Amino acid sequence: MQIFDRLSVRRNRDRAAAIFSNHDFMVSEVADRLADRLDDVTRRFPVALDLGCHGGEIAAALQGRGGIEHLIQCDLSPKMASRAAANGHPTLAVDEEWLPFAPASFDLVLSCLSLHLVNDLPGTLLQIRRILKPGGLLLAALPGAGTLAELRQSLIEAELAAEGGASPRVAPFADIKTLGALLPRAGFIQPVADAETISVRYADPIRLLADLRGMGEANAQTERRRGLSRRATLFGAVEGYRRTFAGDDGRVPATLELITLTGWAPDP
């Protein structure tokens, strides 16, 4: 199934690359949380891959953790990869659905908020397990099913009211049970999936939409409605967001359900 238009995903990230530093706070926060997990692992990982590197936030967060001597960065977007390359690590443009690396190339694969937009996540996890050395580790952070629930509800209600029907506007996110079950299917051992919730409060829902676009997270679903949204739909969604979710201070929440996947490549 082609849920996502991968060419659109790449174009969204290409467009975002020039302004990404104005909107990268969530990627940086999740990268820090992902890197912190290496503090609990005594094993060293000399060769590591940052899969879906965005602007190089994982590299900035590592700060010598994990005994990493060589970090390879890659991103679907050539322009985003060029941005990340400024930190001096080898960087290339790579589609997460078609990994061009030899088997047993890496001791560690890290992925920060990138794998949720692949069409064949089981296949991608299988490829990741293949490129890991025996005893290698996967650490991946993805948005879970509760992510952007407020925005999803507001857009659906506004489009139904203004246009008499609803189209897919927020990406579908998998739940923790589904994601956790994919790890053993891909051949990982000691699989763990855990979830936490991060809530960001905005003075205006329009700023949330700007952040999503600036992060390269504009709608890339294959079945999305083409063309610009009607003004009535957009303004209805913004007003509905405020009316339903605003707190006493007038600010509205945007929820990220962060699911972290941990799995080891088998080692005899």
Rank of each mutant, 00 (worst) to 15 (best):
A181Y: 02
D175Y: 02
G164I: 13
V170F: 07
I176M: 14
K133F: 07
N87A: 10
D175Q: 02
R152H: 00
I176W: 08
D75F: 11
P168M: 03
L126S: 14
A102S: 06
V170K: 11
P184R: 08
E150F: 00
I198D: 12
S199Y: 13
Q73V: 00
L115N: 03
P100S: 08
V192W: 11
P168I: 09
C74M: 02
A104W: 14
E157G: 04
D194G: 00
R169C: 09
A171Q: 12
I128A: 04
G123A: 05
L183N: 01
F173Q: 00
N119G: 05
D120W: 10
S199I: 15
L126C: 06
G146K: 01
G135S: 08
L125D: 03
G136H: 10
A186F: 01
D107G: 06
A166D: 08
H116N: 08
W98Y: 15
I128C: 06
A181R: 08
L92Q: 14
R201E: 15
I131M: 15
G144A: 12
A195E: 08
E157R: 15
C112H: 14
T147P: 04
S167G: 13
E163H: 09
L110Q: 02
G165M: 15
S82E: 14
A162S: 07
S82C: 15
A158K: 05
S154W: 06
P168Y: 11
S105C: 07
G88Q: 13
L117M: 13
G144P: 05
A140F: 09
T91H: 11
A141R: 13
A195R: 11
P191F: 04
N87T: 05
V170N: 10
E157P: 01
I176P: 06
I176D: 00
G164F: 10
F173V: 00
L76K: 04
V192H: 03
R83I: 12
A171V: 12
L183G: 04
V170D: 12
H116R: 06
R130P: 06
L121N: 11
T91V: 01
P78C: 09
L92K: 14
K79D: 15
G165Q: 13
F173Y: 09
P172R: 10
E150V: 03
A84N: 05
A161E: 14
R169P: 11
A149E: 06
L142H: 06
K79N: 15
R83M: 07
L113G: 00
T124V: 14
H116V: 02
R169V: 12
L137Q: 15
H116A: 04
T91W: 12
S167E: 13
F188A: 01
G135L: 03
Q190K: 14
E96D: 13
L179R: 01
